[in-house]
Amino acid sequence: MSEIKTIDARGLSCPQPVMLTHQALQKAGKGTVEVLVDTSTARDNVSRAATSSGWKVAIEQQPEGSYRIVLKK
């Protein structure tokens, strides 16, 4: 099983969650990348950025109110 890269973007302002995700997706090329964010704005922005570069997006809300976004390609 391939390693899952995790990006912790919780607490970061716009546009850093999207920037970190972009960098990670470009570096990974394919596979699974997990992004942690804590606002719905960051959740939507990261999802939109990943979808537009052809990644599949699955979102899980965490108990403490943050989001785990799993990106697969």
Binding site: C14, P15, V18, M19, H22, T41, D44, N45, R48, A49, S52
Partner: peptide
């Protein structure tokens, strides 16, 4: 999430016209 600065920033950075 309307933002008059993010509008230009996202377009320049990631070609995102949202």
């Amino acid at each position: 999430r309307f933002c008059t600065v993010g509008a230009v920033r996202d377009m320049v950075m990631t070609r995102d016209s949202h």
